[in-house]
């Protein structure tokens, strides 16, 4: 009798399992379909750009969407030489990296105080910094030029580094403050008991916990600096100090009739950004991969 009762129940469980399994399978398939569609939409321009970098300009204007008739490598060589990518690349990396370092370090410290402490004028300082999000940078070109002139730092790397820091600080502080304020305040209490100084707490407790947010802020900062054009155009006139976007603009002017060469230049410039993104993204999701053993 017992067996009689038990049997159908077992079957039902198997059934339910099977249903759940197919359900999960279906859902998984759906997820992949969405992701693949998304991939096509997102990657298409890149694919298109890289493909066209290998065409001659005639091939391109006859057949902008197809594969190259002949694979041409000259465009890359042209781009490297004409756009002088080597020098501009160095300048971009240098300016970008220094600006990111200053902006992230000082922004994180500011966010730490603004999120973990109570003091007079805090709200005002926070609001004051965040208003910077709203400043349209093109409005500041002329004043910025005059300012740099008076400070005597026109035509130096600093003429770019300072504005880059200033215009990335608001988003950095804004983002990091919101992350840091979400931690429970017990976090550093024991450390305080132990007599750790505030800077020590910042360095060894808060900073590591904010790693994903910091990585995100680094990415945003870096991409902004990497692509910035207007300040670079106005504040630097010495070609030995110019950054990549200007080099590419020179190059675009040189090859107005030659989109493929332009594509080759842009492809060369894209590679480092993707590598950089991959490095940073690892920081963002590291916690995830470490913790999620169960999957």
């Amino acid at each position: 009798m017992m067996g009689n009762k038990a049997e159908p129940r077992e079957a039902a469980t198997v059934d339910r399992d099977a249903v759940a399994k197919t359900k999960r399978k279906l859902r998984r398939t759906l997820v992949y379909i969405i992701l693949i569609l998304f991939t096509i939409v997102n990657a298409y321009p890149i694919f298109w750009m890289i493909m066209n970098a290998f065409k001659t300009s005639q091939d391109f204007s006859l057949n902008p969407f197809g594969l190259p008739a002949n694979w041409v490598f000259e465009n890359f060589q042209d781009a490297w030489v004409t756009a002088n990518i080597g020098t501009f690349f160095f300048n971009s990396v240098l300016v970008g990296a220094v600006a990111v370092l200053i902006s992230i370090f000082s922004g994180a410290l500011a966010a730490y105080f603004l999120s973990r402490f109570e003091f007079r004028g805090k709200k005002f300082i926070y609001g004051f910094l965040v208003i910077g999000l709203l400043i349209p940078i093109h409005a500041t070109l002329v004043p910025m030029y005059i300012l740099m002139q008076n400070l005597g730092i026109l035509n130096t790397y600093w003429a770019l580094i300072f504005p880059y820091v200033a215009f990335n600080l608001p988003i950095t502080v804004f983002l990091l403050t919101s992350f840091m304020s979400s931690f429970p305040k017990e976090m550093e209490e024991s450390a305080i008991m132990d007599g750790c100084g505030v800077f020590r707490i910042f360095w060894s407790i808060i900073l590591p916990m904010t790693r994903p947010a910091i990585a995100t802020a680094v990415i945003i900062n870096f991409i902004n600096n990497w692509n910035e054009f207007a300040f670079a155009l106005v504040l630097i006139s010495d070609e030995a100090l110019q950054t990549l976007p200007l080099g590419l603009a020179n190059f675009a002017g040189a090859y107005t009739t030659n989109y493929p060469a332009q594509m080759a230049g842009l492809t060369l410039v894209l590679v480092p950004t993707i590598i950089f993104y991959l490095l940073m993204e690892k920081q963002i999701v590291e916690g995830m991969t470490q913790g999620a053993v169960k999957g």
Binding site: S106, A110, I135, T140, P143, L147, V165, A166, F167, L169
Partner: peptide
């Protein structure tokens, strides 16, 4: 951060 932001962000927009 406040000094950099003041000098290179706020002053230009005030001008």
């Amino acid at each position: 951060p406040l000094i950099i932001y003041m000098v290179f962000g706020i002053i230009p927009i005030f001008i």
